[in-house]
Computed example of a mutant assay.
Amino acid sequence: MQILDIFGIVVVVFAVILLFSVIKIVPQGREFTVERFGKYTKTLSPGISLLTPFVERIGRRMNMMEQVLDVPQQEVITKDNAMVKVDAIVFIQVMSASAAAYRVEDLPYAITQLCSTNLRTVIGSMELDEVLFQRDSINSRLLTVIDAATEPWGVKVNRIEIKDLTPPVDITNAMARQMKAERERRAVITEADGEKQAAIARAEGAKQSAILEAEGRREAAFRDAEAREREAEAEAKATAMVSQAIAAGDVNAINYFIAQKYVEAFAELARSPQQRTVIVPAEMSGLVGTLAGVGELVGLAREQQTRTPPTAPQPQRTAAPRTPPTRPAGGGSVPRT
Rank of each mutant, 00 (worst) to 15 (best):
R276T: 14
I246W: 01
A88F: 10
Q197W: 06
G38V: 13
M175H: 09
I246E: 02
A82I: 12
P281G: 10
E296P: 04
I171V: 15
Q113M: 12
V94Q: 01
E191Q: 13
E264F: 04
M95V: 06
V263L: 04
D147M: 06
E226R: 12
I92C: 06
I89R: 13
T150L: 08
I48T: 10
K85N: 06
Q73N: 07
S21H: 05
I246C: 02
P168F: 10
I200M: 03
A301Y: 14
E66K: 11
I146E: 01
R120I: 05
V94I: 08
T112F: 01
T306V: 14
R327P: 01
R336C: 03
L142P: 14
T306F: 10
T172P: 01
E66Q: 13
S333K: 00
K163S: 10
V145C: 05
C115T: 04
V280F: 13
A329H: 11
I171M: 14
M241S: 09
E127G: 09
T117P: 06
T290G: 07
D5G: 02
E231V: 13
L132C: 12
T337K: 08
A234G: 08
T326L: 05
L50G: 07
N63T: 04
R159V: 11
I3C: 00
E31T: 07
A203R: 00
S333E: 00
A214M: 12
F54H: 01
S243C: 15
V16K: 09
Q244T: 13
S272L: 05
A240Y: 11
A312K: 03
D5I: 07
M175L: 15
T239F: 14
I211Y: 00
Y256T: 05
P152L: 04
F54V: 03
R185Q: 10
P325V: 03
R135Q: 14
S272D: 15
R141W: 07
Y256Q: 03
R135T: 10
T323V: 11
E235T: 13
Q304M: 10
R228N: 04
Q305E: 12
P152W: 07
R228E: 04
G249Y: 03
L50K: 10
T112A: 00
E283Y: 15
F20E: 10
E191H: 13
I138R: 04
G331N: 08
R57L: 08
V280L: 15
P46M: 01
P27K: 04
E229Y: 06
V16Y: 11
